[in-house]
Design a protein around this nucleic acid. Structure first.
Ligand SMILES: [Zn+2]
Ligand SMILES: [Zn+2]
Ligand SMILES: [Zn+2]
Ligand SMILES: [Zn+2]
Lengths: 134, 134
DNA sequence: TTGCAGATGTTATAGCATTACACAACAATG
DNA sequence: CATTGTTGTGTAATGCTATAACATCTGCAA
């Protein structure tokens, strides 16, 4: 399922993570809600609260440019300073990767500018190899 | 005002760009709308349509992680493959910068993966030098 | 027992963005 | 001139994303 240990998730957190882990692509909070109505979910806040916790734990990432969420699929994700995502605009697939060279340069800029860096968002939009020809 | 030439903008485009260029920080589409009600703006679409065009022209950038927009302030912005933004979570200030090393590495990854790269989003969140101490 | 922290349930509301349709201005074509 | 196509505009309605506010419940520690 995941490259991470799951430190005692609650029921709601487990359900939300399961929805994401079982999906091939990213899901919006509202589509997660719809998938979990059968399990008793009724309001967006149930999803958002679980997502907040899962993101804090590093099990889930938020894709800022499409307002959606994915289960982490990068082994040793948190050992890297920043993570990048490549999102296919045609099929919706997401590739997660780390490039320490990119991280070093961005952290170098921050240090030089006195910017206290908290979180880095790197998202590539385009067409994946499979969709490129089509 | 700007580092760019302004190729015959329409009235609405001029007003929206003026609002952004005259603001110290980024603005949301709805706060732009509020600022332009006195000039006859009535609906969000008037703002979004102007923004679409201004972004296409490279005069304005969208900040994905805060759903807001800024006037471009980077000289020769479009000569770089990708642009990064550092956003202060306390005062809202935004620094725009280009790092060709970062661009090279991300483009390198895309080429190696066969990913047809269309747009790159790089956003740093944290505290600017001035807010870091406070 | 009491108190606290974290998680949950529910309703309402706020904030962001697009769809759909009608109309106006203008240039290019024939 | 009449036609056609393109781009911008105005307006209303709708849809999608996210949070505020308040009540309740659970488990655990003092
Ligand atoms: Zn990850
Ligand atoms: Zn694809
Ligand atoms: Zn720029
Ligand atoms: Zn600041």
């Amino acid at each position: 399922m995941s490259a991470h240990a799951h430190p005692d998730l609650t029921r709601n957190q487990t359900l939300v993570f399961g929805a994401l882990a079982g999906s091939v692509g990213p899901l919006s909070a509202y589509s997660i809600l719809d998938r979990l109505r059968g399990q008793g979910f009724r309001a967006p806040l149930q999803v958002y609260r679980a997502l907040d916790k899962l993101i804090e734990l590093g099990l889930v990432h938020r894709l800022e440019s499409i307002n959606a969420f994915v289960a982490c699929r990068q082994p040793e994700c948190e050992t890297h300073g920043s993570i990048a995502f490549a999102i296919c605009d045609r099929c919706g697939s997401v590739s997660e990767f780390a490039d320490d060279g990119v991280t070093r340069r961005l952290e170098g800029w921050a240090k030089a500018e006195g910017f206290d860096l908290n979180k880095t968002t790197i998202e590539l939009r385009g067409r994946c190899r499979a969709c490129r020809v089509a």
